[in-house]
Amino acid sequence: MAVTDMTKLTLGPIAYHWSGEERRDFYARIADEAPVDEVYLGEVICSKRAPFHEADLPDTIERLERAGKTVIVSSLAEVMLARERKATADLAEMDSPEIELNNAAGLFARGKRPHRVGPFLNAYNEATIAWMAGQGATHVTLPAELPRAAIAVAAGAARDLGLGVELQVFGRAPLAVSARCYHARAHGRTKDNCQFVCEQDPDGMPLATRDDHPILRVNGIQTQSESYVDLLPEAGEISAMGVTHLRLMPQAVDMVEVAWAFRDVLDGACTVADADARLRALCGATGLSNGFYFGTAGYRRIEAAAPA
């Protein structure tokens, strides 16, 4: 009988412009079937998309909470326009559910009331994490590019401060954001007249080099990795370092099965090799990478040494 590990699995906010129907179906299935403990909702990338989903938010929260999931609402990564400032200020006033802040504008509005620090707020080190804890942060998600040695130190510091600490272990890495919408640009439009062309690409718009190597994905103002980050073989080690929450980013694959692969590995219910094989099958032709974790180029896949 497998021992159930205490490490929590979370589902990050949907980065793409999935339709309302797709989202409702997705979260219904997550609620019913996925072994994730916590789910982040809310539009993080583009403020123009938010009105499409806001109306569904209360129902989605209720659906997930009734299934025993903790729900957290995430704020925009980029805050510049009036509507983005207002959305951030409004979110910062929420008492329930919990909120995750991705921009310093949110920190300003929230003051010392409890909040989570999202991956766009650059909590790279123990000094910054200590500062954030002193300002009301209860939980921090580390930057996706942080290497293993730094994760260990950061996680230890966060644990000593009583904070939850989270790391993305699955899905395309968030590599950059811009004020410019590259989806609109690709179609000869601008951000203001984009006509939501990003909805055509539920897993991001692929960019390849001119000698045909897939390299990046465009998601509106965001640029992501072509490969999915996959730290499944490293999940046990990451958990042992003190990372309390492992984040799965929603991609256009069977996320319920992705979550089970991670849960089974954490619980010792199957071997890493078996779970990894399942994950590879689920991800099809998409490359899997763990380079950031090993302090090398992010796109690389470093094979773990065989266990002794």
Binding site: A77, F120, N122, P143, A144, E145, A173, L175, A176, V177, I215, L216, T223, S225, G291, F292, G295, T296, A297, G298, Y299, R300
Partner: peptide, 10 residues
């Protein structure tokens, strides 16, 4: 907020 260089070069 940019890790493009790290993604390609480490």
């Amino acid at each position: 907020r940019c890790s493009l260089t790290n993604y390609l070069t480490g």
